[in-house]
Computed example of a mutant assay.
Amino acid sequence: MESRAKITAIGAYVPERRMTNQDLEKRVDTSDEWIVRRTGMRERRIAGPNEFASDLACGAVQDLVKRYPVDISDVDLVIVSTTTPDYGFPSVSARVQANFHLEHAGIFDLSAACSGFEYALHVANGLVSSGLNKKVLVIAAETMSKVTDYTDRTTCVLLGDGAGAALVECDDTQGCFIGSYMGADGSLGKALYRTGLSNQMDGEKLVDTGKMVQNGREVYKWAVKTVTSGIQKLLEESRLDFTDIDWFIPHSANLRLIEAIFERLNVPMDHVLYSLEYYGNTSSASIALALSDAVKAGKIKKNDRLLLYGFGGGLCHCGQVIRWDI
């Protein structure tokens, strides 16, 4: 299907509180030098006790409206990617709809972990291009600190909170979505999970703390192989070459992983954007944060081709090539 959808605005929001590597040194057996060397992270933002995913989502939408001359009163669908909703229900998207009085909007939350923003953009492009919707608000909002085990030094140094939002509208002349690719391996679900109503998977009892549990070695191996292959297939689907891409924006899992992926692809890191240094791993919000910051800094310019690629829990992955048209 030819795209008839384009991104017309973007926004972001992060909580005020900063958690530095020095703060983590006081909680677990780690050091600033070790964290920077192993992850590339220096600090992350942490939501307050009474600050939740819907609050961050609304903050990102407010930033979007402030930065661009757009009207969201006629938004007809709100999609929120989150793995850390305020409630089982109502959804985060319902809270956003109520906050902005979007009287004509349908709502749903989407759960695809760290690739959720890309899955949500893919859905929005399909719905708008098909004519089923005209204006879709796509949001990724995560409060990962609320599901972090701060006694586990291998994961607690990684995670932070944040949100990003994009407005996807109909454009009958030329859409901005050039190509997409997605996939999953659900058999590896035990490598990255958080228990809910069930505390077992495939007959195996899980660590049932309600916090995120990760087998970092397994996820790393899967990601390097899968994302490398996925980016190559995405470029093939888009009929493009690596040299046609101005910026690569992967999920900000950790810097060592990103470097391993792009070393395999022979892509120099000065063409790669990420948000992990000062936000940490914000799950599905990480690509939206990197995109928003790069636009604000003037790095991304009109007509640049961007390759976004999310990957994580599920295990699932999704990517798009888009032409930046703002």
Rank of each mutant, 00 (worst) to 15 (best):
N254K: 00
L110A: 07
G11K: 00
L206H: 11
G230L: 02
V157L: 07
K221H: 11
C316T: 14
S130M: 10
M1F: 10
V61C: 08
P69C: 02
G183M: 05
V78K: 04
K299I: 03
D152A: 03
I72T: 00
I79C: 08
R44F: 08
G312V: 15
G59M: 07
S54H: 12
G160Q: 04
S284D: 04
S292V: 05
G313N: 02
L188A: 13
Q232F: 07
L110Y: 00
V36E: 11
I10T: 01
Q232L: 15
M1R: 14
R18E: 12
T154W: 06
T143C: 10
V207G: 04
R323S: 12
A12P: 00
Q62P: 00
G59D: 01
R37Q: 15
L127E: 12
D76Q: 06
K302F: 01
T8N: 13
T39G: 03
T282D: 07
R256D: 06
D32Q: 12
M144Y: 12
G11S: 09
L307A: 15
S286R: 01
T226V: 04
E236D: 14
V136P: 04
A260Y: 09
V224R: 03
I245L: 06
L137D: 04
Y181I: 06
E25K: 12
T226L: 03
V138K: 10
N215C: 11
E277V: 11
Y274G: 11
L127T: 05
S145L: 00
L235K: 15
F311Y: 14
F108M: 14
I178P: 13
K302L: 02
D76K: 13
V78S: 02
M212N: 06
K26N: 08
T226Y: 06
Y309L: 05
D202V: 09
G131E: 09
C316E: 02
E118S: 02
V227P: 09
R44K: 13
K134F: 01
H271K: 15
L159M: 12
A113I: 04
A94R: 01
G131D: 08
G319W: 07
E204C: 00
G162H: 09
A98E: 14
T243N: 14
A57M: 08
L307G: 14
L64Y: 02
A165P: 14
D76W: 10
R17I: 05
K26T: 13
I46E: 02
V123M: 15
L240P: 13
D74K: 15
E237L: 07
S252I: 09
H251C: 11
E237S: 08
A94L: 03
M269K: 05
K296I: 06
A113S: 10
N21P: 05
C58Q: 08
D246F: 00
N281S: 10
F177H: 00
K135W: 09
H122Y: 05
D71A: 04
I107H: 12
M41T: 15
S54D: 03
G216A: 07
V213Y: 12
M41P: 05
G59Q: 07
Q232I: 09
E16I: 08
A112F: 11
L158W: 13
V65W: 01
I7Q: 04
L255W: 03
G298S: 07
D71W: 02
E263W: 00
H122L: 10
L273E: 12
Q214T: 07
R17E: 10
Y13K: 14
C156G: 10
R323E: 15
L235R: 15
